[in-house]
Nucleic acid binder design. Sequence first.
DNA 1: TTTATATTATACCAATCGGTATATTTTAAT
DNA 2: ATTAAAATATACCGATTGGTATAATATAAA
Lengths: 217, 217
Amino acid sequence: MINKFAFNIPIGIYLHWQLKITMTKAEKTRNFIVEKTAPIFNMKGYAGTSLNDITAATGLTKGSIYGNFANKDEVALAAFDYNFNSNVSKIEAEISKKDTTKEKLLAYISIYQSFLVGGISQGGCPILNTAIDADDTHPALREKVLKAVLSWKKSIIKLVEDGISNEEIKVGSNPEQIALTVIAMIEGGIMISRLTNKIENWNLIMDSLKKYINSLG
Amino acid sequence: MINKFAFNIPIGIYLHWQLKITMTKAEKTRNFIVEKTAPIFNMKGYAGTSLNDITAATGLTKGSIYGNFANKDEVALAAFDYNFNSNVSKIEAEISKKDTTKEKLLAYISIYQSFLVGGISQGGCPILNTAIDADDTHPALREKVLKAVLSWKKSIIKLVEDGISNEEIKVGSNPEQIALTVIAMIEGGIMISRLTNKIENWNLIMDSLKKYINSLG
DNA sequence: TTTATATTATACCAATCGGTATATTTTAAT
DNA sequence: ATTAAAATATACCGATTGGTATAATATAAA
């Protein structure tokens, strides 16, 4: 189906349009279900989100849900992907605006700050939430979060390595350690700030992180 | 009942024994239920832990559970208290062994490291787990975790303030900021290390935290 | 416009959910 | 040892769980 169109149309130009035109009703519904349920899974967790929650949020019936997904698992996995990919897009967009390594690292702070209020996916950081939720209970979901964290770590390592090449960051720095430290402080900061519901706590922790990042050079 | 004994017995000496002798069967059972279910609530969360899990873990029947607790909520709240108090005892014991402020702060690292393997309460840090679990779903439980974090923060602030008085920590340091930063790094570190299942990640993050603590003086 | 197919809704399933009334057993004071 | 009370077990409740068979409807190609 896709090939029929793609065969004689320049991919670079019409890829976006082509994807739209080949999106069937079911695919649209699938996306719709994921968009509507992603915040719920993020807030209530896997076990805490029922099929009743899913039908209520979408206005669809069970038949429609199960016509597009094999089971609750598939919806949850797709919801996590949606939440995570939304963040990745946002992060990449913000980071590409910055020039220096330090500025790029600092950009994470302002991006993840958005999770404290509303943000794309309500209920805090999907990585943190899903990691804790799925850790001991849901291997497939856990695997997805693990990949997400490793991918995040990898991105930061790349940034730091570039920074070392540019002589912006000290030679001898451990890029992996820096990546893990940044992630830990951000996720720990989100937990504390959401629990206490105090943005000042976030600011204090992020002030420490800023000092840490600035000390790398 | 307690007063009958306490009235003519020196409290300092017989308090422990007195508590034992006045503990009824039901109180023992209550403790037993809490001990057995605390790791389950910590691993599976509130929604993920069913009454069937509770009866299976204790070997008791529903009638017995509901004879000692009003509902699942009460068991969950008691389980969190148990998990948290176990930690507090452990922490106080370890910290009292150390002499300097920095050593006391560093002691948190080795204590929380125990959460990565087995520890008293399986499934990671109960504060982190319950904070994420109850955040958007269970106000009463959330309130308990909030108090736990604030109490933890308060303890660290006290340590730091003493350190400033002793001239062990720089004058002008922000005790609250230090407390929040330490907690964030530990909790973020636990999340990452448990997810990736790599103790090296914990070590790298804690190495950053050690540097941070040592830089305070 | 017809028609096959894809999609959605209805109605149902067994299993499990948290919770309870009541019967039985165990505890502990007399 | 007796006995009242406390604790536990049995058997059940309605509601909800995730999931499915089937009927009704909407889609889209011919």
